[in-house]
Amino acid sequence: MVLSITAMASDIERGFGTSEGVFVRGLHLVRWTPALHNCVVLNVDGSVMGVSSRGGFGGCTRSDQGQWKSGFFGFMDDACILHLELQALFHGLTVVWEQGYKRVDCQSDSLTAVTLVESVSPSTHLYASLIWDIKDLLGRAWTVNLHHTLKEGNACADFLAKHGASQGDVLVVIEDLIPRLGLLLLADASGFSSLRM
Rank of each mutant, 00 (worst) to 15 (best):
K135T: 08
L82W: 00
T124Y: 02
V104L: 07
F90A: 12
H91Y: 02
W97H: 08
L126F: 08
L86T: 03
W132I: 12
A88Y: 01
A128M: 02
S121H: 02
V104E: 03
A113T: 06
I131A: 09
Y127F: 10
G92T: 09
S119L: 06
A79I: 12
C80A: 15
C106A: 14
H83R: 11
G92S: 11
V104W: 00
F90D: 04
S119N: 14
L130A: 09
I134P: 02
L86S: 05
W97K: 13
G92H: 04
Q99H: 10
L116S: 07
S110P: 01
S121M: 06
A113E: 04
K102H: 12
Y127S: 11
D109G: 10
L86D: 01
L86H: 01
S108C: 13
A79Y: 10
L82T: 05
L86E: 02
L126D: 14
V96G: 03
L116K: 06
V114D: 06
S119H: 03
L86M: 06
L89E: 02
Q87H: 08
L93H: 02
E85N: 06
S110A: 13
S119W: 00
Q87W: 06
W97L: 13
Y127Q: 09
S123Q: 12
K135E: 04
L93G: 03
D136H: 11
V114A: 12
V114G: 10
K135F: 01
S110L: 09
S119R: 08
I81D: 04
E98G: 11
E98I: 08
G100I: 03
F90V: 05
Q107T: 05
L86C: 05
S121E: 05
H83K: 11
K135W: 00
E85C: 07
Q99K: 15
V114L: 08
L138W: 00
L89I: 08
H83T: 09
D133N: 15
A128S: 12
A113P: 01
C80W: 02
S129P: 00
D109R: 05
V96K: 01
D109A: 12
Q107Y: 05
L93M: 07
L111A: 15
D136N: 13
A88S: 10
L111E: 12
H83Q: 12
V114H: 03
C80F: 09
V114P: 02
Q107E: 11
F90Q: 07
V96Y: 00
T112G: 10
D133V: 08
C80H: 10
E98H: 11
V104H: 02
H125I: 05
S119C: 13
S123N: 13
A128T: 04
K102C: 15
T124M: 09
T115R: 14
I81S: 11
S108L: 09
S108G: 07
Y127M: 08
L126S: 15
L89M: 11
D109K: 07
G100Y: 00
L137V: 10
C80Q: 11
T115V: 13
L138K: 05
G92I: 09
C80L: 13
A128L: 02
H91M: 08
H83V: 07
E118R: 12
S119T: 13
